[in-house]
Design a protein around this nucleic acid. Sequence first.
DNA 1: CTAATATGTAACATCTATGTTACATATAGT
DNA 2: ACTATATGTAACATAGATGTTACATATTAG
Lengths: 107, 107
Amino acid sequence: MSTKAVNQKFLALADPARLDIVRRLARGPQTAGQLAQPYSISRPAISRHLRVLREAGIARAEVRGREWWYSINTEGLQDAGSWLDEVQAMWSTALQSLKEYVEDQND
Amino acid sequence: MSTKAVNQKFLALADPARLDIVRRLARGPQTAGQLAQPYSISRPAISRHLRVLREAGIARAEVRGREWWYSINTEGLQDAGSWLDEVQAMWSTALQSLKEYVEDQND
DNA sequence: CTAATATGTAACATCTATGTTACATATAGT
DNA sequence: ACTATATGTAACATAGATGTTACATATTAG
């Protein structure tokens, strides 16, 4: 996962409307229309939010007739999760090294 | 974790400079000056990036003399990770329900 | 074939984020 | 005390994100 790609994913999650959409998609696939319904902002605005999620690889769309069925792209979400895990693993290692260093100083 | 707080964390990670800073902080604590060094953008710009990370609860700063030592706030990072995990768990459950439904239809 | 429906895209306005320079503050060195 | 260093903050310019309305496209209904 390139830094740029990870960044794009976090950017996609950095908006309250999109965060909410992802949460709702987690309960199951929905059409663009269903997804747009609960919000006060215009449908085209939601349409673009959906595009951002698609382009970030966090959501997928399957066109069936005139409806676009959206669902979550688990792998895309996992990429963001992996990045976080990696950083935390690095941090644990750094902490461990620091701890050993301090202990050596005290001997 | 409120949606707003989670959003703030993803927003903090939605910038290439900040993403890079977090990655570097994972290797161990550093001062603001050290963190600013590698970048072509001005030091005040980095200073504000650091502030964004602090306010999102992703980094912490400890003032020692005239230096500000930055380090990662693991809990803050974990909040973002937990949100992702939760969404993925919801999605798994939804998939499972769908699968059972389809199987019932085929009996 | 025509009308209605579902949805994306384009063009434009506006709010927000990010970068810059200038300045304030506080600590360390001489 | 006086100067240099480390760093944050304020004010402002500009780039980028987000919202709106108008329009294009494609599919279903009658």
